[in-house]
Measured scan of single mutants.
Amino acid sequence: TETYTFDSEDQAEEFAQRAQKKGYTVEKRKENGKFKVRVE
């Protein structure tokens, strides 16, 4: 499980979609103005 942090929602969304296409489970959340994407 890895967590990635992005400054913009667009970046987080793009990353999450790519990860989902590769078959990963993706969980997105906003925390302290940053966008976190957890991938497993």
Rank of each mutant, 00 (worst) to 15 (best):
E31V: 08
D10I: 11
A12M: 09
V37S: 00
E2P: 08
R18H: 11
E9A: 08
K34Y: 10
E31M: 05
E9H: 06
Q20H: 09
Q17F: 09
Q11F: 05
A19T: 06
V37L: 03
A16N: 02
K36M: 15
A19H: 08
A16I: 10
R29P: 01
Q11E: 15
E27N: 09
V26D: 01
E40Q: 13
F15N: 01
E14Q: 10
F15D: 01
K34P: 00
S8N: 12
K22W: 13
T25R: 12
K21W: 08
K28Y: 13
E40P: 04
E27P: 00
A16W: 04
T5Y: 13
D10C: 02
A12R: 01
Y24A: 05
K36N: 09
S8W: 07
T25N: 11
A12H: 01
Q17L: 12
R38L: 14
G33W: 02
Q17R: 12
E31L: 05
V37Y: 02
V37Q: 00
E2W: 15
E31Q: 05
E9Q: 06
R18L: 14
S8Y: 10
G23L: 02
K36I: 15
Y24E: 03
D10G: 08
E2N: 14
E31P: 00
V39D: 01
T1K: 08
K36H: 14
T1V: 13
Y4P: 01
R18S: 12
R18F: 11
E9I: 06
T5R: 03
E13W: 07
K21H: 09
K22F: 13
F15G: 00
Q17T: 11
D7Q: 05
E14Y: 07
F35I: 08
R38Q: 11
Q20V: 13
G23F: 02
Q20T: 10
T25Q: 11
R38F: 14
Y4W: 11
V39L: 11
Q20F: 09
G23H: 03
A12D: 00
Y24V: 04
V37G: 00
R18W: 15
K22G: 10
Q20K: 11
Q11K: 10
E27H: 13
K21T: 08
G33D: 07
F6L: 01
T25S: 11
E40K: 11
K22S: 11
N32D: 12
E13C: 06
Q17Y: 09
E27D: 10
F35K: 00
T3Y: 11
A12N: 00
S8G: 05
G23V: 00
E40C: 09
Q20P: 01
F6H: 00
E2A: 14
E9D: 08
E27W: 11
V26L: 03
D10M: 10
A19G: 02
F35Y: 12
E14S: 08
T5L: 09
V37M: 01
G33N: 06
F15L: 03
K36F: 15
K22Y: 13
V26R: 00
K22M: 15
K36P: 02
G23M: 02
F35P: 01
F15S: 01
K28F: 14
K22H: 13
E13D: 14
E40G: 11
K22R: 12
E40W: 15
V37H: 00
D10H: 09
K36D: 04
V26A: 06
Y4R: 05
S8P: 00
E27I: 13
D7T: 08
N32Y: 05
E31K: 04
E14L: 10
R29D: 07
K28V: 15
K34T: 07
K21S: 12
K30D: 06
D7E: 10
E40D: 10
R18Y: 13
Q11R: 08
K34S: 06
T3F: 11
A19D: 01
T25M: 11
A12V: 02
R38M: 13
F35M: 03
G33R: 03
K30A: 11
A16D: 01
G23A: 02
A16P: 00
Q17S: 10
T3W: 15
E14H: 07
A16L: 09
K22N: 13
N32Q: 08
F15P: 00
Y24I: 05
V26P: 02
A19Y: 13
E13I: 08
R29K: 12
T1W: 15
K34A: 07
K30W: 13
K34D: 03
G33L: 03
E14R: 10
Q20M: 14
D10Q: 12
Q17G: 06
E2L: 14
A16S: 07
Q17P: 00
A19M: 15
T5M: 08
F6A: 01
R18Q: 14
G23Y: 03
Y24R: 04
K36A: 11
V39H: 02
N32R: 04
E9N: 06
D10N: 07
D7V: 06
T25C: 08
N32T: 03
V26M: 02
E14K: 09
R38N: 08
Y24K: 05
V26E: 02
T5W: 15
S8C: 07
Q17A: 12
D7A: 07
E14F: 07
E13K: 05
G23T: 01
S8A: 07
N32M: 06
K34N: 05
K36S: 11
E27R: 06
T25L: 13
K30L: 12
T1M: 11
Y4K: 03
F35V: 06
K21P: 01
K36E: 12
G33F: 03
T5N: 05
E13Q: 07
D10T: 10
K30T: 11
A12S: 04
T1Y: 14
T5G: 03
T5S: 09
E13M: 07
V39K: 01
D7G: 05
F15V: 02
K30V: 13
